[in-house]
């Protein structure tokens, strides 16, 4: 009896391992932080792009409006791609768009905005890329939808038409 239990239990274990590997194959192996985690707006002091003023982030996101925080840079190609969507969103009065200018020079950034239009109500200047990290971002572009001091949605990579619809739905 004892002799039979051992082989069968070992075979059983291997079958389980097989199933797990099989399922593992189907998952992607590129890690992206969970886009649905809700966390609060980090409280850090930041430098404003236009005035060089240093203020706390909580002062920027103070009202209970919707905010879209967009991390961008003039050297980033996908940022140009998503720019029309940001321009469209900037027409909406219920939404304030805040930019984080990531590892950029002021001159290039200003040229970029002059060429393509400026959708941002306010811009944070982040030439070392450290502010983006406070938001849990790891690349450009990335966008965060914020309401009541909470990040309710994260968009990694350029905004698409789909995410545009979703943002509009949220605001309504």
């Amino acid at each position: 009896m004892k002799n039979k239990i051992l082989p069968f239990s070992i075979i059983f274990v291997f079958i389980i391992i097989f199933v797990i590997f099989y399922k593992g194959l189907q998952n992607t192996n590129i890690y992206t932080p969970d886009s649905k985690t809700i966390f609060e707006v980090p409280s850090v002091s930041v430098k404003l792009f236009n005035s060089d003023e240093i203020i706390n982030t909580l002062e920027i996101f103070n009202s209970n409006k919707f905010y879209l925080l967009n991390i961008w840079s003039s050297w980033c190609v996908p940022c140009k791609q998503e720019h029309p969507i940001l321009m469209e969103l900037s027409q909406n009065n219920d939404l304030e768009i805040i930019g984080i200018n990531y590892k950029d020079t002021k001159k290039n950034a200003n040229d970029f905005l002059k060429d393509l239009g400026n959708p941002y109500d306010n811009i944070i200047f982040d030439n070392k890329g450290t502010n983006a990290i406070e938001w849990g971002a790891y690349g450009v572009p990335e966008s965060f939808l914020i309401n009541n001091n909470k990040i309710i949605r994260k968009y990694i990579g350029p905004l698409s038409k789909g995410s545009l619809q979703e943002i509009k739905l949220f605001i309504k």
């Binding site: 590892k103 070392k128 890329g129 450290t130 983006a132 990290i133 406070e134 790891y138 690349g139």
Partner: peptide, 13 residues
């Protein structure tokens, strides 16, 4: 990478 370099600065800070 860009990300890693910024992260190093954050760690420093």
């Amino acid at each position: 990478s860009e990300f890693a370099n910024s992260l190093k600065i954050v760690v420093d800070n």
